[in-house]
């Protein structure tokens, strides 16, 4: 029993690595049932009339990209499919390169012109103060855009937005933590009555249940929520996010294996603990 209790933890690392790599190579995940929260996220976007303006905030970094980037990609596809316009902002400094790569790849597929259908305003320091500033006066917060420093008023989409949140029909945040969805709700959602949607990391998802559905109309919780949403968007766009959907469905199979292994370790660890205690 003592040898089991004190055995080298590198064996655990090795088994975990074999499970993750093995399922990544062989596993193929099936379709997931779609939860109410994901349906509401999808339906809120579907309900917007053509030409509406959505503020999409990239509040994440590479550490959380495995969970949030698929949701970000699918959301951009969904918004452009619906012919909605996007004002992109970021409150995390490491997020804008994702905006450059994702919009650079996706916007041309839909013929979405920069300045007309979407704009990228870039990173704004200041956390929740920055959000408050964006809510109060977008033009003051961002005098120029992030692509080629075009003045705010020279971009046709921003001219339609005007100065404040009155011109924004929906706010969506890809939220990895602080600042993120909770700060958007406090600084902008409640004050300017803008409906909010969110994609969140697994760690942050439990926080949202206190705000759903009154202050956050729908959300994609972690990789599970993102996978469910990718399934819906893939159907709606005729396979535009098929690659991302397949990768995420496979990730869910990998996550299944890892979670089962952790639960097994908890059970075995406790069995050893109780048997050892009885023996003592």
């Amino acid at each position: 029993m003592a040898s089991l209790r004190d055995f080298d933890r590198r064996w655990i690392f090795l088994i975990m690595a074999v499970i993750v790599v093995g399922l990544n190579v062989t596993g193929g995940g099936g379709r997931l049932p779609v939860s109410e929260y994901v349906h509401n996220y999808y339906d809120t976007i579907e309900a917007l009339p053509e030409g509406s303006i959505v503020m999409l905030s990239a509040d994440f970094d590479p550490a959380s990209a495995a969970e949030l980037l698929p949701a970000y990609t699918a959301t951009i596809h969904h918004l452009f499919t619906k012919k909605l316009n996007i004002v992109n902002v970021a409150t995390w400094p490491a997020a804008p390169p994702y905006t450059v790569s994702e919009f650079g790849r996706i916007a041309p597929q839909y013929g979405a012109e920069y300045g007309e259908s979407w704009v990228a305003l870039g990173f704004l320091p200041g956390d929740d103060v920055a959000m408050g500033n964006i809510g109060q006066s977008l033009a003051s917060a961002y005098p120029k855009d992030d692509v080629d420093e075009t003045p705010y008023g020279d971009l046709p989409l921003l001219e339609r937005v005007g100065d404040n949140m009155d011109g924004i029909d929906l706010l969506i945040t890809m939220s990895a933590g602080y600042p993120g969805i909770l700060e958007w709700i406090a600084q902008v959602g409640g004050r300017y009555e803008v409906p909010i949607l969110a994609a969140t990391t697994a760690v942050q998802t439990p926080d949202l249940f206190a705000f759903y559905p009154s202050q956050c109309a729908g959300f994609l919780g972690a990789a599970t929520g993102a996978t469910q949403y990718l399934q819906l968007v893939d159907e709606a766009t005729g396979g535009a996010v098929e690659k991302e959907r397949l990768v995420n469905q496979k990730r869910m199979a990998v996550q299944s294996g890892a979670h089962l292994f952790i639960i097994l370790l908890i059970i075995v660890g406790n069995l050893i603990y109780f048997i050892g205690r009885r023996g003592a």
Binding site: R9, I12, M16, P62, A63, A65, A66, L265, V268
Partner: peptide, 26 residues
Amino acid sequence: FIPLQATMFSLLAFYIASAAFRAFRA
């Protein structure tokens, strides 16, 4: 930057597995 941050975050899976066996006691 992306691979380094992703690697750091991925290490959590191994540490949580180890902690599940050694520390999560009823």
